[in-house]
Amino acid sequence: MEYFIQQLVNALSVGSEYALLALGLAIVFSIIGLVNFAHGELITVAGYAMFFAAATWLPNPWLALPIGIGGAALAAIVFEKVAFRAIRNASTNTGILTAFGVSIIVQNVFIIFVATRPKPVQTPDFLSSMITIGELTVPTLQVLETVVTTIAIAALLIILKKTTVGMAMRAASKDFMAVRLMGIKANWVIQSAFIISGILAGIAAVFIISRRGAVDPFMGSVPVLKAFVACVLGGLGSLQGAVIGGVALGVFEVLLQVTLPQEITAYRDAIVFGVVGLVLVAFPQGLLGRKVELGDKEA
C-alpha cells in the first residue's frame, strides 16, 4: 500500500510536469496554429537564468525560482517577436520548421557561450527533502509539483474565464478575425499566450532543475517531446486535452517503469511513443480532439 501511494505520488508529479508543458504548447497552438518545437528551450533558458543568477549576483537559491520563471517568460516573448511574428499567417509546416530552427539556435548559443557540459544549479534545500505522514514518506518535490501544478491550472482557468485577455484567447482559438473586429489587438492576444506558455514552462523548469540539480544545453528536448505526446494524445490545441494527456502520460510512464522487467525499462520511451502512435492511428484527432473535416475553416 505504501509503495502504491509512493508511486501514485510519483506518477502525479511526472504527469503534472508534462501537463504544464503540454498546456503551454496547447495554448499557443490553439491560437496561432504553431507547433512550438522551441518550447523545450524555454526550460533550458529558465535553467541557465537560474544558473547565472546563482553564479553571479544573486547567490540566494530562493531568488533563483522567480528568476527561472521570469527567464522562461521573457524567452517566450523574444521567440515570438524575433521569429514567430514573421511567419504568423504561414502554414503549419513553416511554423514547425521555424520553431525547429529556433530550438537549434538556442541550444547552440548555450554551447557556444557556456559549455556542452552540465552546470550545477542550486535550488532551495527543502525541495530535496522528504515529507513523512505517518508510515508514508514521499519526496517534498513530488508533492509540491502536483500542488503547484493544480494551482497554476486553477489560475489559468480564472484568467481564461474572467479576464478580457482570457476571453479573447478562447475566442481567438476559434475565430481570430472576429476577435480583431472587436478592436482587440492580435499582437496583444498572441503575446499573452506566449507569456502564459513561458510561465508554465518556467514553473515546470524549476521542478525539472530541482530534480536534476544541473543544466545543460539539451535539457529541454526530452521534456518537450513528452509534452508533444501529451498534447497529441489529448487532441492538439485542446487545453483540457493537454492536461489529461499529460497526466495520463505520466501515469502510463510510471506504470511501465514499475511493472516492466528491468531489461525492458530501457525501451520505455520507445513503448510510450509506439503506443501514442497507435492511439493516433485509431483516433487521428487525439483522444479528446474535435474532428475537423477537410474544407472546414482554418481558425
Partner: peptide, 25 residues
C-alpha cells in the same frame, strides 16, 4: 501504414515518434 493515416501537425509528430523509437532501440 501508420503515418499515411494521420495528417497535419499530428502526423508530423508521428514522424518524430519514428525517430525517437529507433534511437531508443
Amino acid at each position: 501504414l501508420l503515418i499515411k493515416r494521420v495528417s497535419g501537425a499530428a502526423g508530423e509528430i508521428l514522424t518524430l515518434a519514428v525517430l525517437v523509437i529507433c534511437y531508443v532501440v
